[in-house]
Amino acid sequence: MGSLRVPRRRRQPHREEERLPLRAQRSRLTDIRNLIARIAEAERGGRLGEVEGLQVSLAGAHRRPHHCIDAPAPSLKIHARHEAELPMLQFMRSVFVFPTGERAETVASLDRHLPEQRDPWTLDGNLYINIDDEQTGYLFSDWDPEDVAILEAAIGHHPTWAVEIDISGRIDGTAEVHQMIALLLEHGGVAMDDYTTHPWTLPEILSGAVIDGLRFFDFRGYHELHREHGRF
Rank of each mutant, 00 (worst) to 15 (best):
A59R: 09
A73V: 13
P65C: 08
E41N: 08
A84I: 05
A40Y: 08
R26G: 05
P74A: 03
S27D: 06
E41I: 02
L76D: 06
H67A: 12
Q25C: 13
I36C: 12
R44G: 00
I39M: 01
Q55D: 02
L48Y: 13
A37L: 04
I69D: 11
P65W: 06
E43W: 04
H62S: 07
I69P: 12
A61M: 06
A42L: 01
G53L: 03
S57T: 13
R38P: 03
E85Q: 13
L76R: 15
D31A: 15
H67P: 11
R64H: 03
R38G: 04
I36E: 07
R28V: 03
E83L: 14
L35V: 05
Q55G: 10
H79M: 10
M88Y: 12
D31N: 15
H79R: 15
G49I: 00
D70I: 03
E85V: 10
L58S: 06
E43M: 09
T30V: 09
H66V: 15
L86M: 12
I69W: 15
E83P: 05
A59M: 10
L48H: 03
R33K: 12
R38C: 00
I69G: 09
A40E: 11
P65I: 02
R26S: 11
G60D: 05
V51C: 00
A73H: 06
G46L: 00
Q55V: 15
L76A: 11
H82G: 03
D31K: 13
L48E: 11
E41V: 05
A40N: 11
E52M: 00
M88Q: 12
I32F: 04
A84D: 09
E52S: 04
R47F: 05
P65N: 01
L48N: 08
L29E: 14
H62M: 06
G53P: 03
L86Y: 12
G53F: 00
G45M: 08
L48V: 12
R28I: 14
G46K: 00
A61F: 10
A59E: 13
A84R: 13
V51E: 07
L58Q: 03
L54Q: 02
P72W: 08
P65R: 13
H82R: 06
E83A: 15
R28C: 07
R81C: 04
R44V: 15
I32L: 04
H79N: 08
H62D: 06
R28F: 08
D31I: 14
E83S: 02
R64C: 08
P87H: 07
Q55E: 13
I69Y: 04
A61G: 03
I32M: 01
E83R: 14
